[in-house]
Design a protein around this nucleic acid. Structure first.
Length: 556
RNA sequence: CGGGGCGUAGCGCAGCCUGGUAGCGCGCCUGCCUUGGGAGCAGGAUGCCGGAGGUUCGAAUCCUCUCGCCCCGACCA
């Protein structure tokens, strides 16, 4: 392509409402434009990059026997009603009515429709296994679209679905996908981790996420470099640092108006890890007391798995239920259900004394209070790995893909049944697998950029090579540029020729910004001696090469 | 949905407090000049000051409502 004919609206200044690096660079380099919150237009360069990513997705999907199909984006409500998700999902689903008043929605994912298809067409174990996939638009009315293309209300997704006769076969398809995903993300030049994750509303028991480390990400993962344990912090197990067991005897300490752990800690000059933090929550009308060590954070999702959905108690409720003001509550002599974090099992602690302006020192777990012990704290840097004891590290990541074992969650309600060898009816065992191509692009930029702009991994760059004829008024320059442009393309290399009548500086700046991996620089002086420069965008290293050698020296 | 911030030219911003009819830089257009890191000179175009209502002789500026966008949090197949 010729730069002069291609729509590449680069920006000198950063639009004010971009925060994430990838967002800023995608806007500045002319890859995307924003239509409204969470709605993005992909411009020619951006679309080419996505095409590259999608081509890789297709190759790797085809390689595991997954078959590409295309499903409607507009769905009738009934199918979603049958699985219960019509009601389970709230405002995140775009809903509408057709002209006859029939309720419809815009697809946010396709488990229902895929299963619907399977239910009509798959009869026998002989029809299994199947893997179907599509690369297609999804719509979700996100509460908070953010970070450019990373969280949007409309986005393209590669979603595949496996249909199996039994668990072993599902396991096989699950591993096929996991392996394919490793290949895909590696080929896209990303640094990534496969981590254990919470299946959430997708249902099913097992799921993994593929996470690309980046400060722009929304998730945190806990990683053990020694044994390889890797999990999203929403379920990561960890062992907080051990503390010394003090030989305090039980006593009540006057702590006037000192309520928070920090306040009491400062007042008594005792570190927060010697405190028990008591948090009252209300789960379905029933009060539950959650106990944390003073230096730990409660992880809501972990608690939800144990007691179901809940909310924090209001101040008046605390007084009503426990008979003492928030800030002075403790676990002793409580009649209500108590969930305590496992790390509190050992040690001697301080907590509220259940008495206004008093805290109790010398509390011994199991002796002074009973509780159900669970890991309900948020894993943090420096915690120990629950498997091998080595130190964990927490890294912020972008979720670029996920894989779920769904089991029969969708096949049962949608009656996707097959007859096995014995003629018995069985529900199809399913899995679902997603990848966000735009997130791959954004993550690639997040992981590969410098002060001058994007540095695309070769595999997903919108072009392989950019030719920079520095002076378009020099006939020799133009002649060589045109010849290289033609020869390289004939060799199957995708070339962007900056044929604009711009000064050298502008061309250099734009080339670095849009990030094509290889630049071929044609300067007058070099050309007179028969040389051009081949410059690597990433290292900025340039080599002088004879004009006739260029085509052979440029590899894809 | 809760908290915060911002809407003035294509982009980045000033002006608003203290009301008097719109400004800067970049970009854009024309010409000259220049061609190895966002050149220079000369000339030019561009605004419902997000929208609606109100106060006032007069509103970008003050007041009320509303819409939009961004950030933090909640939420997130």
């Amino acid at each position: 392509m010729r730069f002069s004919k291609m729509f590449i609206p680069t920006l000198r200044e950063v639009p004010a409402d971009a925060e994430a690096v990838s967002h800023k660079l995608m806007l500045r380099a002319g890859y995307v434009r924003q239509l409204a919150a969470g709605l993005y237009i992909f411009l020619p360069l951006g679309w080419r990059a996505l095409d590259k990513i999608n081509a890789i997705l297709k190759e790797e999907m085809d390689a595991i026997g997954s078959q590409e199909i295309s499903m409607p984006i507009l769905h009738p409500a009934e199918v979603w009603q049958q699985t219960g998700r019509w009601n389970a999902i709230g405002d995140e689903m775009f809903r509408l009515k057709d002209r006859t008043g029939r309720e419809m929605c815009l697809g946010m994912t396709h488990e229902e429709i895929m299963t619907w298809l399977a239910s009509r067409e798959i009869r026998s174990y002989r029809d299994l296994p199947q893997i179907w996939y599509q690369i297609q638009t999804k719509l979700r009315d996100e509460a908070r679209p953010k970070s450019g293309v990373l969280r949007t209300r409309e986005f393209i997704m590669k979603d595949s679905y496996s249909f199996d006769a039994d668990e072993e076969s599902l396991e096989k398809n699950y591993q096929l996908h996991a392996n394919a995903y490793h290949k895909i993300f590696s080929r896209c030049g990303l640094k990534f981790y496969q981590v254990e994750s919470d299946p959430g509303m997708m249902g099913g028991a097992v799921s993994h996420e593929f996470m690309a480390p980046s400060p722009a990400g929304e998730d945190e993962v806990a990683l053990c470099d020694k044994c390889g344990y890797a999990a999203n912090v929403e379920l990561a197990k960890s062992i907080p640092s051990k503390i010394k067991t003090e030989d305090w005897e039980f006593e009540e300490v006057h702590t006037p108006d000192k309520r928070t752990v920090q306040e009491v800690s400062n007042f008594l000059k005792i570190k927060p890890e010697y405190f028990v933090k008591s948090i009252l929550v209300i789960a379905d009308q029933t009060p539950v007391l959650a106990l944390m060590r003073g230096d730990q954070e409660l992880h809501e999702k972990k608690l939800t798995k144990i007691i179901g959905s809940h909310r924090p108690a209001q101040k008046t409720e605390v007084k009503e239920i426990l008979g003492v003001e928030a800030g002075f509550i403790g676990p002793m002599n409580q009649k209500i259900r108590i969930i305590a974090d496992s790390c509190l099992k050992e040690g001697v602690y301080i907590s509220g004394a259940n008495k206004q302006h008093y805290h109790a020192k010398g509390i011994k777990p199991e002796k002074d209070f009973k509780a159900e012990w669970h890991d309900i704290h948020l894993a943090k840097n420096g915690d120990k790995c629950s498997r091998c004891g080595a130190e964990l590290r927490i890294e912020r990541c972008i979720e670029i893909g996920n894989i779920f074992k769904l089991g029969t969650k969708y096949s049962v309600p949608l009656k996707a049944i097959f007859l096995d060898e014995k003629g018995e009816e069985k529900p199809i065992i399913m899995g679902s697998y997603g990848i966000g191509p735009a997130r791959i692009a954004a993550a690639a930029i997040e992981q590969n950029n410098d002060k001058d702009g994007i540095i695309w991994p070769k595999s997903i760059a919108p072009f392989d090579v950019e030719i920079l004829p520095l002076n378009m008024n020099d006939s020799k320059t133009v002649e060589v540029a045109e010849r290289l442009y033609k020869d390289l393309r004939e060799k199957g290399i995708e070339v962007l020729l900056d044929d604009r009548d711009e000064r050298a500086g502008v061309k250099f700046k734009d080339a670095d910004l849009i990030g094509i991996p290889t630049q071929i620089i044609l300067g007058e002086k070099n050309l007179k001696e028969g040389f051009v420069e081949i410059k690597d965008r990433r290292t900025k290293e340039a080599v002088k090469v004879g004009v006739e050698e260029v085509v052979d020296r440029v590899s894809v």
